[in-house]
Simulated assay, not measured.
Amino acid sequence: MDLSHVRRLIDLLAHAPVTELEVEEGGCRIRITRGGAPSASPAMALVPVADVSPMPVEAAPAAAQPPVAPAETVITAPSYGVFHLSPSPGAAPFVTVGQAVQVGQEVGLVEAMKVFNAVRATVAGEIAAVLVEDGMEVEAGTPLFRLA
Rank of each mutant, 00 (worst) to 15 (best):
R8E: 12
P93A: 15
P42V: 12
I75K: 00
V23C: 09
L13C: 10
L46C: 11
L13E: 10
A69S: 12
T76G: 01
M44F: 10
L85K: 10
G108T: 07
P78I: 00
Y80H: 14
A118E: 13
A60E: 12
A69D: 08
V74F: 00
E126F: 05
Q99F: 05
R7H: 14
G90K: 03
G26M: 09
L131F: 03
V52N: 06
E25G: 01
D134T: 12
P67F: 07
A112E: 09
A148M: 01
V95S: 07
G141T: 04
V57L: 10
V47E: 13
A128P: 08
G27F: 05
I10V: 15
P67W: 01
A50F: 03
A128W: 05
F94L: 03
T33W: 11
A62Q: 14
L9S: 12
S53F: 07
V97Y: 04
E58K: 12
A128R: 06
V52Y: 01
V132C: 05
E22A: 13
E139W: 04
V47K: 09
V49M: 10
A62F: 13
E133Y: 05
D51I: 11
E139H: 08
V47F: 05
A140Y: 00
E126G: 04
A91I: 00
A63V: 15
G141Y: 01
P70E: 07
A129K: 10
V119C: 05
A37L: 15
E106F: 04
T76P: 04
A37I: 10
A140W: 03
